[in-house]
Amino acid sequence: MPAAVAAVFRLYLLRHAKAAWALPGQKDFDRTLDDTGFADAEIVAGMAADGGMRPDLVLCSTALRCRQTADAFRRAMTEDLDIRYVDELYAGGASVYRNVIGSQDSGLSALMVVGHNPVIEEILREILSEEAAIEAAPAGYPPGALAVIDFDMRPSADMLPPGTLTAWLDPDSHGR
């Protein structure tokens, strides 16, 4: 029996957890996670850590709700988790996300991107078939959900190759 081929690259796509509505005069950028969002981020981070899912690098939108979501992963995995904040992930479109994913050092084997919808869902649909994306997230990409995608070839700055969804962690499937 032939041995399974290891993935060349693993991408963790994480949509920030549920955020509170902006308060009067508050900028969207400064919205925080609400109580459900904090709990969901901890749940998904714990599930990922328990499953041995640990990225080499986390690239995170600078929006407060994304930073708070990424912090749950730092607490669940290790304090030395390498998290870098990328301004362009806050308002950037799919081309920005593609570029950020594809322009990483070739020695990197596992990358997590913490960002926003609708772009996170758009990237998921681009990497997977439309059918596979709908099967994973029939009602859309929920807040706090994590897609784990393996690639047989490395993404590049101008192209995300097809990938295989190897895990889907959704806080709503955890049962509170």
Rank of each mutant, 00 (worst) to 15 (best):
M1V: 01
I123E: 07
G102R: 08
A39N: 14
L124G: 09
L11W: 00
E122T: 15
L128A: 12
Q104M: 04
A48S: 07
H174P: 03
S129N: 06
T62I: 12
A110R: 04
H174N: 10
T32I: 02
M153Q: 14
M77K: 10
H116Q: 08
A72R: 11
A76P: 04
L13G: 08
W21V: 01
T69F: 07
R75I: 02
A110F: 00
G175P: 13
T78N: 05
F29Y: 15
P143A: 14
Y141N: 04
G102L: 10
L169E: 03
F38R: 15
A22P: 04
E121V: 05
M77P: 08
D34R: 11
M77E: 09
G144L: 05
G115R: 03
A63M: 04
T62F: 11
A139T: 11
A91S: 10
P24F: 00
I149L: 15
E88R: 10
D87P: 04
S173D: 15
L33R: 08
S109H: 12
L124F: 15
F151W: 01
D40H: 15
P118A: 13
D82N: 12
L108S: 05
L57A: 03
D35T: 14
P155T: 04
G93M: 08
D150P: 02
L11E: 01
A139D: 15
F73M: 11
M112W: 07
Y97D: 00
A48K: 08
N99K: 07
